[in-house]
């Protein structure tokens, strides 16, 4: 009996390790190849790290055809601003619905739930034409400002408030003479730190990885974000490129999200089931 269970457990661990390897193998190959020089990579895959890491990094950062440093900075600006706006205003909206008893409150929340699943690509046509009319093409504003209205984040924040905030805190703050915005900014936001962390990371990652809209909006070389540079690399004459640099650029594009994830994985994995409404 115990032998049977042990056998089964071994089988389960083997399968789990297999999937772990499957998840990690592409990244392993990526990082290994990023440390090899172009001629080494052409010779065939080697599982040992090479010595060209700094060389590749230097070359890709100072590539004349590919503004990689600008791309990194642009991606960082857009993603940080998006994350900040998205968590602040989503929590504000959720707080507004949770704490106050205004007319049509339930309808407002139902509406937010309804629009949560409307894909953004569908309105891309109208969006681009509107930005043209506003003279906002080739600018970061159309990528940042819409983050004020992020339905999925509002939904998450509302659930978080429902499970953690007691209205007595709000009452107490009012009795102490704080205004409504003061209460939100200095009492509620500190209470919501864990939710801000989780949703901030999700917004950051979403914006960092976003390719569809930026590729249609951003035109000039100095405004391009990383996903656009990667697409550009893909459409360039592939064989002329230094493979070491290609692997290094991919590494640079995914590294920030992986680092943030590893540092905060405990919060994130707990948050997925709670939010429960991603793609």
């Amino acid at each position: 009996m115990t032998a049977k269970i042990d056998g089964k457990r071994i089988l389960i661990y083997v399968v789990l390790i297999l999937f772990t390897v499957l998840c990690l193998a592409p990244f392993f190959m990526l990082i290994i190849n990023a440390t090899h020089s172009h001629p080494d990579i052409q010779k065939g895959f080697s599982a040992l790290p090479g010595k060209a890491l700094w060389n590749n990094l230097n070359h890709v950062l100072h590539n004349d055809n590919l503004p990689v440093i600008t791309g990194l900075v642009n991606s960082m600006i857009v993603s940080v601003c998006t994350a900040a706006l998205s968590v602040y205003f989503s929590a504000l909206t959720a707080y507004g619905i949770h704490v106050y008893n205004f007319k049509y409150k339930t309808q407002v929340f139902s509406f937010i739930l309804l629009i949560m699943l409307v894909p953004s690509q569908i309105s891309a046509l109208g969006f681009i034409r509107e930005m043209m009319a506003f003279g906002l093409m080739d600018s970061f504003i159309p990528l940042i400002i819409p983050a004020v209205a992020t339905p999925a984040t509002v939904f998450f924040m509302k659930q978080y408030l429902e499970s953690t905030l007691s209205l007595e805190i709000v009452e107490a703050s009012r009795i102490d003479g704080a205004g409504e915005f003061r209460t939100y900014n200095s009492i509620i936001i500190p209470l919501m730190k864990p939710a801000f962390a989780v949703q901030g990371i999700f917004s950051f990652v979403y914006s960092w990885n976003n390719y569809f809209l930026p590729s249609l909006l951003l035109e000039s070389k100095s405004m391009k974000t990383l996903p656009i540079l990667i697409a550009q690399l893909r459409s360039a004459d592939f064989l002329k490129f230094d493979m070491g640099q290609i692997y290094m650029l991919i590494t640079l594009a995914i590294l920030p999200t992986v680092i943030v994830y590893i540092l905060l994985s405990k919060n994130i994995v707990g948050g997925i089931a709670l939010g429960g409404v991603k793609g």
Binding site: L92, G96, F127, E130, P142
Partner: peptide, 16 residues
């Protein structure tokens, strides 16, 4: 409540 949810709906109306 209306003031708190206003930014969301304003931005949603214009950008979505």
């Amino acid at each position: 409540g209306y003031i708190f949810i206003a930014p969301f709906f304003l931005v949603y109306a214009i950008f979505s």
